[in-house]
Design a protein around this nucleic acid. Structure first.
Length: 587
RNA sequence: CUGGGCAUAGCUCAACCUGGUAGAGCACUCGCUUCGGGCGCGAGAGACGAAGGUUCGAAUCCUUCUGCCCAGACCA
């Protein structure tokens, strides 16, 4: 492609609404443009990246024995009504009516629709296993779209669905998809962790997320530094401590301390000169469904206690309480429940349910809020001064012992969810009557699995992991082009050398963008760094005088450092490097 | 949806508080000049989100609407 003929509208300034690297660089590099909140144009370069990712996904899905289909994005309401998700999905569903008043929606995911295919077309145990996938535009009216392509209302997803006769078969399908996903993420050159996850609203028994590691990620995960244990902190298990440190410490007397205007654990810890582990962090939660004003009963307030250096795992807290969800109480509720300003809650004398984490339950002579503004207690002991239901309700954190192996410690990472795989079981098939006949003509619901990859999200994710201050550093496998030729000046020899290299490279299957614009060299170099193609070839009179061109990988940080390659070898050398990078993606 | 904020040229911003008819940089057009890291000079074209109100007069004050951003619940 000739740059002068291409639409690559690069801009110098970061867009005002961009808050992360991938968003900024995609817009600055002319890859995407915003159309509305969570809706983007893919300009030519952006589409090329998207297509590259799609074909990697397609190849690995096909290799794993899945077959591609395409279901409509516009769907009649009846299917979601059949499983109840018409109501459950709430405002996230884009709903619309046709001219006759019939109810429709845009597909956020396609379990119901594919299950409908299955119940019509899969009748016998002989018909399975099957795996169907599609790469399609999905619509979700996200509460808050953000991060450019990271969270959109319209996005491209690969969703696959497996159909098996029993749990064992479903597990085999699940594992085949897991391996295919690993291949996809490996080929994209991404650093990721496969982590145990919460199946959440999709449902099912087993699920795992492919978390691409990135500091800008919104998901917290923990991984063992010794074994392969890794999990989203939401569900990470915590090794139960046998006893708290200083168990033989004599019980101190409880004392009330005046702690003016120091509400946070950090502040009080510094004020009282006590380590954070000696604190009982006390948080007021509202248990259960609270939304929808005018509920018959006031929501129940619960005090959750964790050690001062720990955080509450809200999913575990909800499970311990036997409710679907918990919410942080509002400041007003906290003040009502504790008769103190926020920051001074504590279990001593708290009127209401108290749930205490196992680690916190072992702290002796603890410090905690006194339920009185500007006051804390010290020397607080469970059993003597207060009590509560003991449960595992804290988040796993950096340095915790691994729950899976003897010696490992957990490390925390931030990640972006790039893929999620589930064993669904019979949740959809049973509800929708997708059954098959076994050898004895007995009917059973089909056992399903579902598997998603956020294709358009991965475009942004790859950048989050591969960029510097000057621009993108594409992994070769998903770069819009492999090589950018930058011609400096336009004398006849420069141009003819570039033309020949350009043709030779394309002839060898190397995708080339030739910056043939009548621009100053500085402009071209800046744009090349911004666009982030893996190799740059500079052709200018200087090196050409000695029969050379300059080759520089985008990963080389030093702008002046380039390798001199004889003109005659350039095409071959570059073709070899591109092929090698495609076969062995580096991380 | 809850809580904050924003909306002025293609982009990034100023003028608004204290009403008097809009200014810069980048980008764009033309000319000159220059050519190895977003050169330099000159000339030009180009904008107050929408509706209503107050006023002699509104980008500026008020109301409503729309859109967008940030923090939260959600998720590929």
């Amino acid at each position: 492609m000739l740059y002068s003929r291409a639409l690559i509208p690069t801009v110098k300034e970061a867009p005002a609404d961009a808050s992360n690297a991938s968003h900024t660089l995609l817009v600055r590099g002319g890859y995407i443009r915003k159309v509305g909140a969570g809706m983007y144009d893919f300009l030519p370069l952006g589409l090329r990246v998207l297509r590259k990712i799609e074909s990697i996904v397609r190849e690995e899905m096909d290799r794993a024995g899945a077959q591609e289909i395409l279901m409509p994005a516009l769907l009649p309401a009846e299917y979601f009504k059949e499983t109840g998700r018409w109501d459950v999905y709430g405002d996230t569903l884009f709903r619309l009516k046709d001219r006759k008043g019939g109810e429709f929606h845009l597909g956020p995911t396609h379990e119901e629709i594919v299950t409908d295919i299955a119940r019509r077309e899969i009748k016998s145990w002989r018909d399975m296993p099957k795996n169907l996938y599609q790469i399609q535009t999905k619509f979700r009216d996200e509460p808050r779209p953000r991060g450019g392509l990271l969270r959109c209302r319209e996005f491209i997803m690969k969703d696959a669905y497996s159909f098996d006769v029993n749990e064992d078969g479903a597990r085999a399908s699940y594992e085949r998809m897991r391996d295919a996903y690993c291949a996809v993420f490996d080929r994209m050159g991404l650093t990721y962790r496969l982590v145990a996850a919460d199946p959440g609203a999709i449902g099912g028994s087993t699920s795992a997320e492919f978390q691409v590691l990135a500091d800008s990620g919104e998901d917290a995960i923990v991984a063992c530094d010794n074994c392969d244990y890794a999990a989203n902190v939401e569900i990470a298990t915590v090794k139960v401590p046998a006893e708290g440190a200083g168990a033989d410490e004599p019980l101190a007397d409880r004392a009330k301390v005046h702690t003016p205007k120091v509400g946070s654990i950090e502040d009080v810890s510094a004020f009282l000169k006590l380590p954070k582990e000696k604190f009982l962090k006390s948080l007021v939660y509202v248990a259960g469904e609270q939304r929808g004003a005018g509920g018959a009963e006031p929501p129940g307030l619960v005090l959750a206690i964790v050690r001062g250096d720990h955080d509450v795992n809200e999913i575990r807290l909800a499970r311990a309480l036997g409710v679907d969800e918990v919410f942080m109480a509002t400041d007003q509720d906290v003040e009502k429940a504790t008769s103190a300003k926020t920051g001074f809650a504590g279990p001593v004398g708290f009127k209401g349910k108290v749930v205490v984490d196992r680690a916190a339950s072992l702290v002796k002579n603890a410090a905690t809020g006194a339920n009185e503004t500007d006051h804390h207690f010290t020397g607080v002991n469970r059993g003597r001064d207060w009590d509560g239901e003991v449960a595992d309700i804290r988040l796993a954190t950096n340095g915790d012992p691994c729950p899976n192996c003897a010696t490992g410690k957990l490390k925390t990472y931030k990640g972006i969810e790039g893929g999620h795989i589930f064993i669904l079981g019979t949740r959809y098939s049973a509800q929708m009557g997708a059954t098959y006949s076994d050898e004895k003509q007995e009917k059973h619901p089909i056992v399903m699995g579902c598997y998603g990859i956020g294709v358009s999200r991965l475009v942004a994710t790859a950048i989050e992991q591969n960029h510097d201050k000057d621009g993108i550093k594409w992994p070769t496998s998903i770069a819009p082009y492999h090589v950018q030729i930058v011609t400096v000046g336009a004398d006849e020899q420069v141009t003819s050398t570039a033309k020949k290299l350009y043709d030779d490279l394309w002839a060898q299957g190397v995708e080339v963008l030739w910056d043939d614009r009548d621009e100053r060299p500085g402009v071209k170099f800046k744009d090349a760094d911004l666009l982030g193609l893996p190799w740059r070839v500079t052709i200018g009179a200087k090196a050409l005088a000695n029969g050379n061109v300059e080759v520089k990988p985008r990963t080389e940080a030093d702008p002046k450092k380039a390798e001199l390659v004889p003109v005659a070898d350039a095409a071959r050398v570059l073709a070899e490097r591109v092929k090698s990078a495609l076969t062995h993606p580096s991380k």
